[in-house]
Design a protein around this nucleic acid. Sequence first.
RNA 1: GGAGAGAUGGCAGAGUGGUCGAUUGCGGCGGUCUUGAAAACCGUUGACCUUCACGGGUCCGGGGGUUCGAAUCCCUCUCUCUCCGCCA
Length: 422
Amino acid sequence: MISLAFLRENPDFVIERLRIKNFQASEYVSQIINYDKSRRSLQKQLDDNFAEQNKIAKEIGILFKEGKKEEAQLLKDRTAVLKVEAKTIEENFSSNENAINEILVLLPNIPHSSVPKGYSAEDNEVVYSEGDLTLPSYFLPHWEVCEKKKLINFEIGSKLTGAGFPIYIGKVAKLQRALINFFLDNALEANYIEIQPPYMVNEDSAFATGQLPDKEGQMYHVSKDNLYLIPTAEVPLTNIYRNMILKNEDLPVKHCAYSACFRREAGSYGKDVRGLNRLHQFDKVEIVQITTPENSYLILDEMKAYVLTLLQKLELPFRIIRLCGGDMSFTSALTYDFEVFAKGQQKWLEVSSVSNFENFQANRLKLRYKNENGKTQLLHTLNGSALALPRIVAALLENHQTEQGNIYIPKALQVYTGFELI
RNA sequence: GGAGAGAUGGCAGAGUGGUCGAUUGCGGCGGUCUUGAAAACCGUUGACCUUCACGGGUCCGGGGGUUCGAAUCCCUCUCUCUCCGCCA
């Protein structure tokens, strides 16, 4: 959520920057400013009213002690009038406040100055790439490899649960376990503190990280207890710090977590969902950092560099992309996507997304710190996948095929898998 | 699931209708003393809205109510603890 104070002071800037995200904000912004104006004048009226009521209440107390009942009664009559007035003002006030908030949650985050204008994935900017893209003729897409070697069974998953919930069998099950440990150990080495979070969160948490209200349909909901299955560990990880004021020496906060992730992926269909490319349940190791506004872009670079080393260790060809305004998420100010080239299906697969949310999440979270001047100020939150498993597994199965039809396990992973070939 | 107790500032813990936004202790910060430190002593120390400022207002788990006046009384929700039941 964009902070109201910032919007009040920089309305034109907000409107102009949101154009990069192809969002027409001018109507919303002027509405908010009008509501805010009357909200503040109502607040003044209400404060004055309460001030008088408070004063009278104290006077009545004194009069009662002195036994001056009649005089007290006169003052009581005055408060009765004030209370009626206060009630109307209050109603007006809160309807203004609600109106502001309703509009405010509709505004996406302001994109960073480096974000290119654009409408879709075609307008994204490739900022880095490495790895060998040559295509041996015998390479198969991972779903064919899985079928041939009986590694992943999609049909049984459908029988158990539904489409998008495959079962992993034998060596590929262990490969997944190995990847989780590999990712976690790397994160620990980079000084992230590991968390095991709950897989369900309440409404407040889902709202604070921005899943509600805009992405409600994307989450599985347990209606009986009004809980949401987490679409990513980002939600519990970031919400740890909801309603907190951190000290300077606590920063930056660095957390990593493994979790299963649950996504309904409502509205997605077609060739993109083939095999492991898009699942309803998948495993992921997530990294989250919380830092001061001055440092957040340095931290974003640090996180980007960290994810890069993971892909290098997995010996996968990849590229880093700076998302254009139109392709960015609602909450992000700057996002780098990591795409791995899956040679079997000859396709770039998004395996990580590293974002700086600046204070957009922190504003909803009420996550602040005391700066050097002793002022409380919103922090910046960042997160990244490091990494999501299914597409990495797909890429490993597709890119590390040998001529004999086996799958080679990269050196860095072998100590975790205990085998060199599948 | 049943019965009971509780939720107060960074922490501990008073306060049961009237200058209480809250006694006190610890912790934090500043100072005196000291070569330095400790101890002792003095001062200071919550968040939010609003105002150029002075100031005003809100917040004692959340929401609602009673009252001229609520941390204090009532209702409700959430959470925590104790006991019983069930259970990996």
